[in-house]
Design a protein around this nucleic acid. Structure first.
Lengths: 129, 129
DNA sequence: ATCGGTGTATTAATTCAATTAGTACAGTGC
DNA sequence: GCACTGTACTAATTGAATTAATACACCGAT
């Protein structure tokens, strides 16, 4: 488990850890049911506090990407990939909802919301095939 | 100019002031080219620091809702209503962009983004006529 | 049972941004 | 020059986020 952390470029350590692990799973470096380094071990490697690693793991557990067995260790969840997909959907839905609720609160007509949405999707090349 | 401020329900004073003034304009209580209370006067009324009022005015100026004449005072911009509309669009666009950029970064296919968007618009009854 | 491993809980130190205020400065017009 | 306008700069306060210290609780093998 070789993680490279950029010391404080603004992104919290625990989020960096969580992100690296999710990528490792997506790429296949970490396989379902495979063990993650222990909280203490990873903390030693990175010269940080065990609690910081624990927090990263907690984040991942909430996302359903990993699970823990008390006294034994932490493992990649069998449905890690699918869980990652659902988590993505949740994040995006929350952001979209925020925008839509704000628009509605400001009295913006649906047609205008749709127009802005369409422009943005187009700008980022996200046309439907 | 009677503003009622709920002391620290979490919303910053300067934002509350800006909001009240925008509503006053929208409702017609403040008319284009009409004067706003001076920074000092309003600060006295509200028993707060002039700089706090100034900050609220700065916010509104950035949004094109008011303008200042040095040494004379602050006035409602002629295009205040239209400016308010544009400001709304900017806010909503920024929020939507955040969501779309995040979705793209997470590798979510456009069809899925569109699906979530559609669901949300439907949930909030924002169908196009 | 106890040892060496696992994760957890509680609390505190630190840092950082946001908010507000104190105070002194600068422009305008009578 | 006086009385009014907004402005600049600095500092106090607060509150949330992040990280760490340290002590606790669980598991499995010896």
């Amino acid at each position: 488990m070789h993680l490279k952390l950029t010391t404080a470029d603004g992104v919290p350590i625990y989020l960096q850890i969580a992100d690296r692990i999710k990528r490792a799973i997506a790429v296949g470096k970490l396989k379902p049911e495979g063990p993650l380094p222990s909280v203490r071990q990873l903390a030693l490697d990175l010269t940080i506090n065990p609690n910081t690693v624990a927090r990263a793991y907690l984040e991942l557990e909430h996302q359903g990407v990993i699970y823990k067995r008390q006294g034994q260790g932490t493992f990649v969840s069998p449905q890690a990939v699918e869980a990652g997909r659902k988590e993505r959907a949740k994040i995006v839905a929350a952001l979209l909802e925020k925008a839509i609720v704000e628009a509605a609160a400001l009295g913006m007509p649906p047609s205008e919301i749709a127009a802005i949405y369409g422009q943005l999707m187009h700008r980022y090349g996200l046309e439907r095939p």
